[in-house]
Design a protein around this nucleic acid. Structure first.
Length: 595
RNA sequence: GGUUCCGUAGCUCAGUUGGAUAGAGCAACAGCCUUCUAAGCUGUGGGUCGAGCGUUCGAGUCGCUCCGGAAUCACCA
């Protein structure tokens, strides 16, 4: 609509003032609620052509549009704003032509689909997932669904950081204090069990460091010469050397962690098409660094460490291989990126990683470019903000975290309590009820996180549980459940929807309001895809649900006696339900039929 | 210290390329269930958009300065 309208306005200026206007001067926006109209043209930028007052200019363009554009039925001018009303019949035609969520989604299809890799989750194998990972997983999975809905070929990948000093810490503590404990004997989830020993390591190590500090040692030295720390480093060297005992332990403990992660991923409803392991990709990374050194793209210091000089990019010197030849974080990311390109020839490679690593990805992209990989232009760091607690950042070393599994359980439990209190599910089996509680609890959690602009940091207060009223997941689920309920009743009364009856009728204001919101669905989706922001879809769905609830409150659907009106209301209800379903689907949120 | 990001109602968040009187929810208060689900709907109160200067017909939005907060600048990941 907006596109056609802009063309017509351009035409009006041409005819009235004999001037060609560029696109940015035609400022069309939605009319504010307090004023009458659907779209508003800001006329200030056009005054230079009309050489007239804002009011007169608005009047002239308004009159032209009435005469020459049948969709516009009325207009009014307030100060420099030309408010245009689109006729009900135009909206009705629009609705008849796009009377399903799929029709609307089709408008988002990109003309040329790309191959897009989305990397998300990227856990370390020394501790369980926490709230920060939840945000990461939800964002990654959602952006996958949004891009896929636009027609792209999207591949979900995960890079598991399974090697390094951190896992050695857990392994060492387990060797020392574990007494052979396993997930089976301890009845702990594997990732939690390993995490327990990681925390134990840090605790013991801290004691050792403090005693060294008390004996007068400098902090850095103390940190490095704590006996536990030394042992962990020795273990890492053994691991790199392929020491059988260490490698076996590593495999065993990692397998515990993976089983735990799989469970959490399952509960969250996310999955992956391809999983990379850093224990494999870092080798390739080393080779890439060596090759680049041979081509003099990198340089070597006297201590044999290898560096990249990025100062011409306004960046720093960057270490790529330690003096002992071992790899660093950047090394394995280079390897992973090249591996991925060789495997998929992607157009875009999206890294869903927190904004604390902005610098890292800036360097990674520039470095690949420097090494001659032109496709590094396709690398995109989907940088999202931290989840903070009211007291500040989460600190996993100190155990100040909101654990993912705990949070999910608590949300489902809260959903159960709220649902039972409302007591609407009396005739369901226990299994069916649990399924509904699960959908609602997770819906609340996911929506709470995804409705926030990904770029921004967000605060999570564990003591105030996540709401189920207002701008929340359950509110939207509830709206959907109501619509489903209407259709169940309709079926019982043998009332069917008949679109052909709609031709030529006059929709009411509230109905037009909903159709207008329908028409914004493709824009919201496209903006979400282009701006990497599931929040836009979330907020769109909220707006639609709110508007529908008002409509639902003010008008009877099945009780309407005039058949055509009832039909329109049924059709509008159906499309609302479809859009909410699809929109929430893009956020990875499931919808209960009843709640 | 260098670089980057953020400051909107008591709290959590929206606010399109600069446009009209800055919006929602929560919390508080007052109403609405004999009706298609009240997890809903309606209303009231609540703001120096961190501060100042500038650009502009017009600034929460753009620029500069300052204040406050965060991230990063590791032979950590």
């Amino acid at each position: 609509m907006e596109v056609i309208l802009r063309d017509k306005i351009r035409e009006a200026v041409k005819v009235l003032y004999n001037s060609d206007v560029s696109d940015e001067l035609i400022q069309v926006q939605e009319t504010k609620k307090d004023f009458r109209g659907d779209f508003t043209l800001v006329v200030f930028p056009l005054l230079r052509f009309s050489k007239n007052t804002p009011e007169k200019t608005g009047e002239s363009i308004g009159e032209y549009l009435i005469k020459n554009f049948e969709a516009i039925s009325k207009f009014n001018v307030i100060k420099g704003f030309l408010n245009l009303e689109v006729s009900g019949s135009w909206w009705l035609d629009y609705f008849i032509n796009t009377a399903s969520a799929d029709d609307l989604i089709d408008k988002c299809r990109v003309p040329v689909p790309g191959t897009i890799l989305v990397e998300y989750s990227s856990p370390n194998t020394n501790k369980p997932l926490h709230l920060g990972h939840i945000r990461n997983n939800l964002l990654g999975f959602s952006i996958y669904r949004i891009l896929a809905s636009c027609g792209h070929n999207v591949i979900k990948t995960n890079i598991v950081n399974d090697r390094g000093i951190h896992i050695c810490k857990s392994m060492l503590a387990w060797q020392k204090f574990g007494n052979g404990e396993t997930p089976e004997t301890s009845r702990m989830k594997g990732d939690h069990l390993v995490g327990k020993y990681y925390v134990l390591f840090e605790k013991e190590c801290k004691v050792q460091i403090e005693s060294l500090l008390n004996s007068g040692m400098e902090e850095n030295d103390a940190r490095n010469s704590a006996p536990m720390m030394k042992e962990a480093r020795e273990m890492l060297l053994k691991w790199e050397a392929g020491d059988r005992e260490v490698v076996d332990l590593w495999k065993k403990m990692n397998s515990w962690v993976y089983a735990g992660f799989d469970e959490t991923y399952n509960k969250l409803g996310v999955d992956f098409d391809k999983i990379y392991y850093e224990s494999e990709t870092y080798k390739h990374g080393k080779k890439i660094v060596q090759d680049a050194l041979n081509k003099n793209i990198l340089y070597q210091k006297e201590d044999t460490s290898i560096w990249a000089d990025m100062t011409d990019e306004g960046l720093d010197q960057k270490l790529l291989l330690r003096s002992d030849g071992t790899a660093v974080y950047m090394t394995q990311d280079l390897g992973t990126a090249v591996d991925r390109y060789n495997e998929y020839r992607f157009d875009r490679n999206i890294y869903v990683v927190g904004n604390e690593q902005n610098y890292h990805f800036h360097v990674l992209k520039a470095l690949l470019k420097k090494m001659g990989y032109q496709w590094s232009d396709g690398l995109f760091h989907f940088s999202y903000g931290m989840v903070e607690l009211p007291e500040g950042k989460m600190k996993s070393r100190e155990g100040i975290v909101v654990d993912a599994d705990d949070l999910i359980s608590e949300m489902i439990e809260t959903a159960r309590e709220v649902s039972l209190e409302l007591g609407k599910l009396a005739d369901f089996t226990p299994e069916e009820k649990n399924e509904i509680f699960r959908k609602i609890g997770l819906g609340a959690l996911k929506y709470f996180i995804l409705k926030v602009d990904p770029k921004k940091n967000m605060t999570f207060n564990p003591t105030e549980s996540i709401d189920f009223n207002g701008n929340t997941g359950p509110f939207i689920q509830y709206t959907y459940a109501r619509i489903k309920s209407v259709f169940r009743k309709a079926e019982q009364s043998e009332i069917n929807e008949n679109l052909s009856l709609l031709q030529g009728m006059h929709p009411g204001e509230k109905e037009i309001g909903l159709i207008r919101i329908f028409s914004k669905f493709p824009e919201a989706m496209t903006a979400a895809a282009e701006g990497y922001s599931p929040a836009l879809v979330a907020n769109y769905c909220y707006e639609l649900a709110r508007e529908y609830n008002q409509f639902y409150h003010d008008f009877s659907i099945l009780g309407e006696t005039e058949e055509r009106v009832r039909n329109l209301r049924l059709a509008i209800s159906r499309v609302t339900g479809e859009i909410l379903f699809k929109g929430m689907w893009m956020l990875g949120i499931e919808m209960p039929e009843r709640m």
